[in-house]
Design a protein around this nucleic acid. Sequence first.
DNA 1: TATGATTTTCAGAAATGATTGAAAGAAAAA
DNA 2: TTTTTCTTTCAATCATTTCTGAAAATCATA
Lengths: 196, 196
Amino acid sequence: MDTNVPNSPMNENLREAQDRFVAVWGQMAGAWGISRTMAEVHALLYISGQALCTDDIMERLQISRGNASMSLRALLDWNIVSRVTKRGDRKEYFEAEQDVWALFRAIVRERMNREVDPLLASLYEIRDMTAKAEKGKGEDASAQQRERIDNMVAFFETLEKLSQRFVSPSGKGLQLAATMLSKFPDLGFGAKEEAR
Amino acid sequence: MDTNVPNSPMNENLREAQDRFVAVWGQMAGAWGISRTMAEVHALLYISGQALCTDDIMERLQISRGNASMSLRALLDWNIVSRVTKRGDRKEYFEAEQDVWALFRAIVRERMNREVDPLLASLYEIRDMTAKAEKGKGEDASAQQRERIDNMVAFFETLEKLSQRFVSPSGKGLQLAATMLSKFPDLGFGAKEEAR
DNA sequence: TATGATTTTCAGAAATGATTGAAAGAAAAA
DNA sequence: TTTTTCTTTCAATCATTTCTGAAAATCATA
């Protein structure tokens, strides 16, 4: 049986543009820390602006059912795609978050949890190990090494705190600030030094 | 012949801490968009705080000469490791940037150049393709699609501008702001909403 | 409960990415 | 120039990740 293809005979240019968007977004997959297909599925859902079912996605991206299923599941885990049910239709449909800033807040949140939090935990342990060494011989080397780790720790703690503000409800305040800051280069933060 | 191993008999705890740091940093490689070995080499140079030669690195990380050479070259390209020559010694030595904020400014600069700039260029083209489609039939779908691309473009343009401030000489202003902001949660940017 | 539509799982296949090691290249010293 | 030391390159190999497809599981409905 034929799968539901919304707005079936799509404008040619439009579809070509979508294909390019999917390809380009797929190339960025590495940057978001996800697989290429996962990024492509997300790109398709985002750019089409519609809820699509697994078969739509398989057909459009020419991927297997297994791949589609796993990619969608992963996107749900990342909270950037959500399930949609249509009454009178047993299939599951999927749609992408359409607010770009919300999308990136979700990505930041997820990556902080998955990558930075465990890193910080390890850094604390490593700092302790180094601190222990300070009792024995080679105290100088130890103290210097601990300082280097401290600098790392301080950086990631700042990143952590900043990201918490970014992903929180008030993150929209930070979003506004970012937009203003990018639009008016003369606002605060040492813009004058830059002008020299 | 034996290669130069500075401070030869290193405190055991110290070395173990270094090894863990190298391992942990290597696992983060994906996050910085570089290969595991590259990250490990960088980690070793950073945590040791010394200039090391290729043989030191090969021996400590148990990697081949070719791998060491290519990883070092890539780190030089990223501007986070620099060459050092020692008078009376023919070998090249390498040392890592020790200022953590400078390190991350370099990473941001590099990733913006390699990833975001080409992405934006493609997005402009894709937007044009979509805009062309607006003349023909299905004008609604086209206009909506163009809007979605515009939102993406606006986001990345903001990111671009922000990063330019961050990596510029006055980036240190932004660094200071970030540190302050993380230390005093009640400063600006809608902190009150957050408190509810 | 039995049926049929839909989704998930996972072992093996395919694709991609990283690493080695030996040979060629480069550059200082003899 | 020749020798010696050190560095780079790259085809072949190895390791890891991703993808497929068919079987098993799930789940609504009759």
